[in-house]
């Protein structure tokens, strides 16, 4: 394993822990953005430039901005934070713990296979190759996903639309 991979994984795990452990929700969001950056670094190590760039643009650049936006507006701090009942905390701990258990159990027997140097295609993550695969091999799922996104977009526009007679603000 290269030192870069180890470093990226270390930062990724550390910042992912920071997301959960940070008291301040804004710090959590910033840690999550750092996590996305390290994931993009991993994509780059796998020679997937397009995926790395899109991960930054979509997740770090757009979705997390909206997260931050909402959290800043909510003005969450320790005084106003609602205290969850003990049952909810207990249920959350059980659910999270079993997820961890399942993941560990599933990963335990995984036999990591290296790549075959004779048939390995270093250009596989490049944007033109990805486009060809998406539009030839997976054209139908691709189009279905785009219709799903379109439906979500139209729905959100409808929800945000002002009814007649409603106040401006």
């Amino acid at each position: 394993m290269s030192p870069l991979f180890l470093f990226l994984s270390f930062v990724a795990l550390l910042s992912a822990l920071g997301v959960v452990l940070a008291k301040n929700p804004v710090h959590s969001v910033l840690f999550l953005i750092l996590t996305f950056f390290t994931l993009s670094g991993h994509y780059l190590l796998l020679n997937a430039q397009f995926l790395a760039a899109v991960n930054i643009i979509v997740y770090a650049g757009a979705i997390m901005v909206l997260f931050l936006f909402v959290i800043m507006f909510l003005n969450l701090n320790e005084e106003t934070e609602p205290h969850k009942p003990a049952l909810a905390k207990f249920a959350a701990a059980i659910a999270g713990g079993s997820l961890l258990l399942i993941l560990v159990a599933a990963m335990r027997n995984v036999n990591p296979v290296g790549y075959d140097p004779t048939s390995f295609d270093s250009q596989i993550g490049m944007v033109d190759r990805l486009g060809l695969v998406l539009f030839q091999q997976y054209a139908l799922p691709f189009e279905l996903a785009s219709i799903l996104l379109l439906a979500a977009m139209v729905g959100s526009v409808m929800l945000g639309k002002r009814e007649t007679g409603e106040r401006n603000f």
């Binding site: 760039a53 899109v54 643009i57 770090a60 931050l68 944007v127």
Partner: peptide, 21 residues
């Protein structure tokens, strides 16, 4: 880099964090 335009676009979209934070 192969995806130079996306790189610029990504950096531009990150630029707002400085202002927001």
């Amino acid at each position: 880099i192969n995806v130079g335009m996306l790189y610029v676009f990504g950096m531009v979209s990150l630029g707002v964090y400085g202002i927001m934070i």
